[in-house]
Nucleic acid binder design. Structure first.
Lengths: 222, 222
DNA sequence: ATAGAATACGAGCGATGGCTCGCATTTAAT
DNA sequence: ATTAAATGCGAGCCATCGCTCGTATTCTAT
């Protein structure tokens, strides 16, 4: 096929080549998922879009599920980087400020790649090996629970597990629905309103009324 | 095929026969969805389980999607019967009581057929004709919004659309996650705790602090 | 009893999808 | 330059799926 069997030593090594193939495959999977949906994401099509043959695909991935799982994994890593960052940054701040920041982070996270997020949430069968979506929320739960522990003196709730469940579930659902249903027309303005509302929701739930009133006053001053 | 071409006039009429076929098909679809998942629910398999031939299936349903849609529809009718009932019953009560009752209804609804609910939520591609799931939540939103309107004097929120979105989303997510993740080991006791928490969450969000304190006192007395 | 309408049947067509396997090309080592 | 390992290729196998259509059965009306 190569007219001139070019003897010139080519570029980089074999490990790089295969890595590129793998990356191309994951990227292609993501693109197809976003642009054509889960159903149209056949292994043949993925390979084609990746500019790679099906055979190569099966050298690196045991099947379609693994491809999708890789996409999910990559996406979740991005999200968690954001969330973890916000949590660290906020760990020692008063709870009112902290919660606001965390909600903001949740929204940011959902705005990273909304279309992909939507496909993953709506079209991926959460069956077999693809139930990892749950693990993702588990991690959020654990992180938020430790956050609550460190602020337990500011809270009125007793059962921290329960409280973490309530908060994480609510925030996730709110941001998720907001970003996905309002879709593209989700302005920075709308985002701010949502942060206010969500923060008020979980703060009212977490903190004693006295503290809530005081914090509200302080927030308005700032 | 019939050994004795029994001349005895049989029972009921043709309309009943076809109705039975349709019912059997819907029921079979639901059963397969629950027991084997969306992927294994092929039209052939559905017909087989329904004790009916594929041909008959296609006389009453234009395709697989329609079958699934019918199952969804039936399930949602049940849910909405519950929700609507609770809302009517509670329309004129003070908001603290009302919200508690509504949350309780949401949980009841999710406990009707959790396994089916789970499959519908997790495995059905929300694409094409099957996006009706969203319409369902739309209705909840509208119902709850009018509820808020009628209690607007008891609220501190200004934007009722926004408030309805926050409440419906949170309650739905909480009950959904609770019932599905805790699965079978979701005792009546756990349900009660959840009602408390969810009610506290949205009441704290909806009502002014003064009213909240007063209502809490009242609830404890009762 | 008979005819025609309604209902049911199920073998099989055409399409698609996941995946394999034998062979080609590229790279690294000698 | 030679060789073996690594990597890539893609036609095509096999299974499944959604769905059609010609035929058989049952029901209603007369």
């Amino acid at each position: 096929m190569a007219r001139k069997p070019v003897t010139k030593p080519r570029k980089n090594a074999s490990q790089d080549r295969s890595r590129a193939t793998v990356d191309a495959l994951i990227e292609a999977t993501a693109r197809i998922l976003v642009r054509e949906g889960f159903d149209r994401a056949s292994t043949n099509r993925i390979a084609e879009v990746a500019g790679v043959s099906v055979g190569s695909l099966y050298q690196y991935f045991p099947g379609k599920e693994a491809l999708v799982a890789a996409v999910i994994e990559r996406h979740h890593q991005e999200l968690m980087r954001l969330v973890r960052g916000a949590l660290a940054e906020v760990a020692s701040q008063p709870i009112a400020r902290a919660v606001r920041r965390l909600v903001a982070a949740a929204i940011e996270a959902h705005r990273i790649d909304p279309k992909l997020h939507r496909v993953l949430a709506e079209q991926i069968p959460r069956t077999g090996r693809l139930e990892n979506v749950e693990r993702f929320n588990r991690e959020n739960f654990v992180l938020f629970r430790t956050f609550l522990e460190e602020h337990s003196d500011e809270l009125r709730v007793v059962d921290l597990d329960l409280a973490a469940f309530v908060c994480v579930t609510s925030i996730e659902a709110l941001t998720h629905n907001a970003v996905l249903h309002l879709a593209e027309m989700f302005s920075d303005d709308a985002a701010e309103t949502l942060v206010d509302e969500a923060a008020r929701l979980v703060l009212g739930y977490l903190t004693p009324t006295s503290r809530l009133a005081r914090d509200n006053r302080q927030l308005h001053v700032l």
